[in-house]
Simulated assay, not measured.
Amino acid sequence: MNYQILVLDLDGTLTNSEKKITPPTLEALIRIQENGKKVVLASGRPTYGVEPLARELHLERYGSYILSFNGARITDCRSGQIIYNRTLPADSIRPIYEIASKYPVDILAYGPSELISGLQINQYTEQESRINHIPIKQTDHFLDEVSSISNNKFLLTGEPAEIEKVRKEMISHFRGYLNIYCSEPFFLEIMPQNIDKAFSLQKLLNSIGLTADEMICCGDGYNDVTMIEYAGLGVAMQNAQPLVREKADYITKSNDEDGVLYVIEKFM
């Protein structure tokens, strides 16, 4: 298969343990774009948390794409145009907050230039802040703060045992209305219904005239499973969660061994 598009999760996939793209992988990704291939950075991060890596890879020069918020937003890097955008239903925001408030977890929204913490900042809130290079703004007026912004997703952070409890209650309450899942044991993603990486990639492929058979998707986390199953070639990193490796067509080297570079050299 002549693969035309390479979709990459970021943390644990494209970036190594230091959250960096190694020079050989960087050079290879620029080279395939020079040869007409498209690169998509597909992440649970907000758009501004992906943009520094997009600039490193010169996605704006080659007309590649950012798929952020686990697929709730797609951005054309060349034009800066948002070509797909889904937000949480307005009537879900208060009950999400009220359920989260019953547990020792934090609830995060993504402001224009800060991470809005609505409950109790914890180490996982701080981790999300570091990943995205944005400051935390703690507020006692979360519902007022988020009423004026575009809420593509909320993130609940906390100890895995508590996240599992709140996950079960959220799913029971919002079944069929919201998409709720863990991207990590300490991160609970609260998303618009039917939004995941595969759904949004289908939207993107339709808009640019490519098919899933022409696409390689690489990932390591639970939120990468749908795109790995959807892709013509679904690739799990060696460091991926066991379920992700089970679903993949191919297992590459780990993110600390230039696993993405290995995929490029073997398949593109």
Rank of each mutant, 00 (worst) to 15 (best):
3 Y>A: 08
5 I>F: 13
6 L>W: 03
11 D>W: 11
12 G>T: 08
14 L>M: 00
14 L>Y: 00
14 L>C: 00
17 S>I: 03
19 K>D: 15
19 K>I: 14
30 I>F: 01
33 Q>M: 13
33 Q>L: 10
34 E>N: 12
49 G>T: 09
49 G>S: 07
52 P>I: 07
53 L>A: 07
56 E>K: 13
62 Y>V: 09
63 G>M: 02
64 S>R: 00
69 F>I: 00
70 N>Q: 09
71 G>T: 05
72 A>R: 06
74 I>R: 00
76 D>V: 01
76 D>G: 01
82 I>F: 10
86 R>A: 14
87 T>R: 12
88 L>S: 06
94 R>K: 09
105 V>A: 12
107 I>M: 09
109 A>S: 15
120 Q>D: 13
120 Q>I: 12
124 Y>C: 06
125 T>G: 06
126 E>T: 13
126 E>L: 14
129 S>D: 07
131 I>W: 11
132 N>D: 05
137 K>N: 12
137 K>R: 15
138 Q>D: 13
140 D>V: 05
143 L>T: 14
146 V>T: 06
146 V>K: 02
148 S>E: 11
158 G>V: 03
167 R>E: 15
171 I>C: 06
178 L>C: 04
187 F>S: 02
188 L>I: 06
192 P>D: 10
194 N>A: 15
195 I>V: 14
196 D>N: 13
198 A>K: 01
198 A>W: 03
200 S>F: 04
201 L>V: 01
202 Q>D: 15
203 K>D: 04
206 N>I: 11
206 N>A: 14
207 S>T: 06
211 T>H: 12
217 C>S: 15
218 C>V: 05
225 V>F: 08
239 N>V: 02
247 K>N: 05
255 N>Q: 07
255 N>W: 03
256 D>V: 09
257 E>F: 12
266 K>A: 06
267 F>M: 00
